[in-house]
């Protein structure tokens, strides 16, 4: 089910790379079309999964990753449409491929525990996945910012100089993505807290609910990423940390998010392994 969109994403990744190297607008348009087609196929796949299991597939880490990939593809396509910039695709789409490979190779079981039927849980996961998609965009924009910054600073105007939008533009795109991501991260964390309080009352004996505390790795690392992004937004306003420093922060922030989402999600957490 997750393999068909994966194939489309692989094709799109190749096309975006070709576009980045040759700079031909026609290849870029084909790449966007293939990616949009992949996202559409992904939508169908998720729709079918939703119908067969009766709810949106977000309850276990594997299907949450697939949903995240879908959100990121859509968020990226939206950015591309609103900014007319395709240069970012060469960085984003490989990430889609790498993450989508997990659900494609290892399909999720999607046995939803009864305590996850609360609408609070749906809002919690959906907001966080959307936040992560925004952070992924911010990270990629940050990386390209640093690459372009280094080229201009070193006076070696070459590969990235020719292909990327201006530093100012990249900075503005970065702050927009981080702001949106931070908002959804905050909503996700708050809603998660509310849901935990409710679940504590309903399922006193579930060890996972008992493990829901700030000391659980998953929650602790999530709070760390929230702190980093909060600092990035604060530092921009208060002490003028824009540009390169903001770019670095959003890269570090997403590294932590990804670590939390995949590594901690699969291996370390005691509270979030549904």
């Amino acid at each position: 089910m997750n393999t068909i969109p994966l194939i489309a994403y692989v094709a799109a990744a190749g096309l975006y790379a070709a576009f980045f190297v040759t700079g031909r607008a026609s290849i870029g348009r084909v790449a966007s079309t293939v990616l949009a087609g992949g996202a559409l196929l992904h939508t169908f796949a998720m729709g079918m999964q939703t119908m067969s299991i009766g709810h949106v597939p977000i309850a276990d880490t594997t299907s949450a990753i697939s949903t995240f990939v879908w959100l990121l593809a859509i968020a990226y396509l939206y950015t591309e449409m609103t900014t007319e910039e395709r240069a970012m695709g060469v960085f984003i789409v490989p990430l889609l491929v790498a993450l989508q490979a997990i659900p494609a190779i290892r399909p999720g079981l999607e046995h939803r525990a009864p305590i996850l039927e609360s609408p609070w849980f749906g809002v919690h996961v959906a907001s966080l996945l959307f936040a992560y998609a925004s952070f992924a965009l911010a990270c990629v924009i940050g990386i390209t910012y640093v690459l372009l910054f280094k080229e201009i600073k070193a006076k070696h105007l070459g590969f990235f100089y020719k292909r990327l939008p201006s530093l100012q533009r990249l900075d503005a795109m970065n702050v927009r993505a981080v702001t949106v991501g931070w908002l959804f991260l905050t909503i996700g964390v708050v809603v998660g807290g509310i849901w935990t309080v409710q679940a504590r009352a309903d399922a006193v004996l579930d060890p996972r609910i008992r493990a829901m505390s700030i000391l659980d790795p998953k929650i602790a690392v999530a709070m760390l990423s929230w702190a980093i992004y909060s600092f990035q937004l604060y530092a921009r306003r208060a002490i003028g940390w824009s540009g390169r420093r903001a770019a670095w922060l959003s890269t570090v922030g997403f590294g932590i998010v990804l670590l939390n989402f995949v590594a901690v999600g699969y291996f370390l957490t005691k509270s979030h392994n549904f």
């Binding site: 372009l148 201009i152 105007l157 100089y161 939008p165 201006s166 530093l167 100012q168 533009r169």
Partner: peptide, 9 residues
């Protein structure tokens, strides 16, 4: 063109 690459518009 350098100025445009740094500042955009």
């Amino acid at each position: 063109s350098l100025a445009r690459k740094i500042f955009g518009r």
